[in-house]
Amino acid sequence: MMRKIVLAAALAIFSLPALAATQGEAEAALEAAQAAEAQALAAKAAWTPTEAALKKAGAALEAGEWDEAKAQADAALALARLSLEQASEQKTLWRNAVFR
């Protein structure tokens, strides 16, 4: 019984910092997302939901909500990467859609 209590306490202690994002982590996530979105904009491949997620991440960062800021920034990064992937694939795939 005592082993179980110790194990549960250890798990609780070690998992808490993993759940909460720090200011540094949120800022780093936002920076990475902004860089990826800048690439997408330069490639004329950006998506509006990415812009919306970046805006929310910036607002959360200003409000000191690090978890929310990091979550939104991570979502923006994923969307920006997908938009770049789409643009890259479509560079050749568009030809398959042409009516002949």
Binding site: A45, L82, Q86, Q90, W94, A97, F99
Partner: peptide, 16 residues
Amino acid sequence: KEFFYTRKGQLGVSCA
């Protein structure tokens, strides 16, 4: 022509 047939946006649709 490329723009017309290229899928874009999160919905992944082209003009075509």
